[in-house]
């Protein structure tokens, strides 16, 4: 948006009016032509990739300001509901070598296994209570699940701006078949690139968790937030995930995403 405003600044007054008129026309058309569900579908479609790899830095800032860091390498084959991912911790020393295999399904919660090298064994992680925190972060297990558009009802709640970007504000409520810790979520999707800008999760009428996306960049044609920050508003803590060495469509093999694979150092 800022880049676009910059370009707008370099054109003349008439040109600006034309551009504004065109923008308004496009906006009106969009609002009319697309309903909330279609926006979410489009946003999901635009992040489709055959695979993804990055190195992540996870920083947990507790209410007292203490910071704890963890680093991992992340590899994913497929995307959204049809994907498998391996997350391997690289730091600090006490968690180095611990690996997590996540198998996402379009119609149900993911399956997860963990490999603990010190006792040389893997274990299945049962995500029965998905409201619990994900390994001490401010994310819950549910927050990390890939959301399926069919599991929610959407309402377009209006327009808003996040970090200067125009966004659609969409309210999503879980359908009866979907069990969730949240009563509803409000999601902001940028109008220019359909990138997610913010999530707010509610329990009854109270916002309990807020997820902000920042440093959104186009990486290999996919608008990707390089930083995500989840704030637990009840605990007063926040967790920041920073992605580094991000790449899409890396050639991975299916056998790299198995229990045998995560047992390998």
């Amino acid at each position: 948006m800022s880049r676009r405003m910059g370009r707008a600044g370099r054109v003349g007054r008439a040109g600006r009016i034309v551009l504004l008129a065109m923008a308004l026309a496009i906006h009106a058309h969009s609002a009319l032509a697309q309903n909330a569900r279609q926006i979410v579908e489009e946003a999901q479609k635009r992040t489709d990739a055959k695979s993804q790899r990055y190195e992540g830095l996870l920083q947990v800032f507790d209410a007292k300001g203490k910071i704890s860091d963890k680093r991992w390498s992340f590899e994913r084959l497929g995307s959204h509901g049809n994907s498998k991912a391996v997350l391997r911790f690289t730091a600090p020393a006490e968690v180095k070598g611990v690996a997590l295999l996540v198998v996402n399904h379009p119609d149900r919660a993911s399956d997860q296994w963990m490999w603990t090298p010190a006792i040389e064994r893997d274990r299945r992680i049962a995500l029965q209570d998905r409201s619990t925190r994900f390994f001490g972060t401010d994310f819950s297990f549910e927050d990390l699940e890939e959301r399926d558009v069919d599991q929610f009802d959407y309402t377009l709640a209006g327009d808003d701006a996040v970090d200067g970007s125009a966004c659609w504000r969409i309210e999503s409520r879980p359908k009866e078949s979907k069990s969730s810790q949240y009563t509803k979520s409000v999601v902001w999707i940028r109008k220019d690139d359909y990138a997610f800008a913010r999530f707010e999760n509610y329990v009854k009428d109270q916002v309990v968790r807020r997820l902000n996306y920042s440093d959104i960049e186009n990486v290999q044609g996919i608008w990707t937030a390089r930083q995500m920050e989840m704030a637990d508003l009840r605990r007063g803590s926040r967790t920041r995930l920073t992605l580094d060495k991000l790449a899409y469509n890396v050639p991975f093999k299916d056998e790299d995403f198995t229990l045998q694979a995560i047992r390998r150092p």
């Binding site: 947990v60 704890s68 006490e94 968690v95 180095k96 603990t116 010190a118 001490g136």
Partner: peptide, 26 residues
């Protein structure tokens, strides 16, 4: 932790909040 509370009096809260640290060190 859904069934039992393990609030710490001393030590790193992350140890119990983060099963990863706890599990990684047998």
């Amino acid at each position: 932790r859904s069934l039992r509370d393990y609030d710490l009096e001393s030590g790193d809260d992350a140890v119990v909040d983060d099963p990863l640290v706890f599990l990684a060190q047998p």
